[in-house]
Simulated scan of single mutants.
Amino acid sequence: MFADYSWGDLMSIFAMQGFAGLILFSVYVLMALGLAIIFGQMGVINMAHGEFMILGAYVTYLTSKLFAAFLPGLFGLYFFVAMILAFIASGGLGMAVEWLLIRHLYKRPLDTLLATWGVSLILQQLYRTVFGAREVGVEIPQWMMGSLTLTDTIEIPINGLFVMVLAIGISVAIYVLMYRSGWGLQVRAVVANRAMADAVGINTARTDRLTFGVGCGVAGVAGAAFTMIGSTGPTAGQLYIVDTFLVVVFGGAGNLLGTIVSAFSISQGQSILEFFLSGSTAKVLTLLTVVIIVMVRPQGLFALKLRK
């Protein structure tokens, strides 16, 4: 596999594929952070998580069109507005789904899986009806165009670099929210001992709804970031949902550090293997590796300690 390349070529390939893996890592992290909050903290298998991501992508698409039509002088700033709107739209829809459906199915994981799969199909058809079956893309702001040249063979696209910075920023924000805020303390109290949390006055129902909303909102931000590196279609979210669940389970459900480490490991391994092998073979090898590790360590790389 490596015999046809010189040492210098291999270093360039690993550098370029490593950076491509970092872009994939950024999308995985943004998707998996929201899913880790929902699945890890609430035990809900949200099969519609990819559709909440695509909602954020479509909100970004609409925002770009509105800015181009009515505020062309501020077009370079539309993405920051789109991120906020994507979070609000996806988070608001998530809270509505939790109130209408999920709250009736807690402690019934198979039922939540089927119910959210149904929500996924409904949202896909809704997107297809409103936006059409064809993929759409956004116009990237001028300041995000081009690339940074590191060497003669290594260039870093600015939009990919921005997505990575965004992923780091969101990760820090989620950490502060979950471990340095009063609301995060309530969430962790509910996870540790729901009955005791309810007994000391924590509104567990409202905490659940907000937690689900925040997780879906983060997925919406992931969708906004996704538009900077790819096109959006009604079923695009399904391309990432399996990998995202893989990241969360491999890292340890509910552990933010484990989610980040898992996303980095899987994205880097998959990106480098895809250069030397076919994409499907790379995915299969990555999946087999993760499955073997999870068989040895079922709790994932990092596990939360919960009160039994």
Rank of each mutant, 00 (worst) to 15 (best):
D111A: 12
A225N: 02
S26N: 05
A167P: 04
T289R: 06
Q142L: 15
L33D: 01
G132T: 01
G233W: 08
F70W: 13
L55G: 05
S120D: 12
A303N: 01
V290W: 01
Q186I: 14
V29I: 02
Y106H: 07
Y78M: 06
F264M: 00
P234V: 05
L210E: 13
I13K: 08
Q124G: 10
Y28H: 04
L210G: 14
S181M: 11
F275K: 03
A225E: 03
D152T: 11
Y78L: 06
L287A: 09
F80H: 07
G269Q: 03
I84F: 09
L77M: 12
S12C: 13
G21E: 00
G169H: 08
G94P: 08
E155Y: 15
G252V: 02
L288N: 07
A133F: 12
I170P: 00
Y106C: 06
T232H: 03
A192L: 09
V172P: 11
A57W: 07
A115W: 08
R103E: 10
G137K: 13
I140W: 09
R307S: 07
L114V: 10
G8C: 13
V136S: 12
V59F: 09
V176R: 15
L301N: 02
L33C: 01
L246K: 00
V44W: 01
A219E: 05
S278H: 02
L74E: 14
I23A: 02
W183D: 10
R108K: 10
M16D: 14
D243A: 12
T204G: 06
M145D: 14
V218T: 09
G251Y: 01
L93Y: 09
W99E: 15
M228I: 02
T149W: 14
F80C: 05
G215D: 03
L306I: 09
M95F: 08
F226E: 06
G50D: 06
F131C: 08
G18M: 05
G146P: 01
Q41N: 12
S147T: 11
K283Y: 11
Q41L: 12
L177Y: 10
M31G: 10
Q142Y: 14
T286V: 05
W99S: 15
L148M: 14
V119S: 10
I84E: 04
F245R: 00
F75P: 08
M144T: 11
I45W: 00
Q17D: 03
T129Q: 15
M228R: 09
F70S: 11
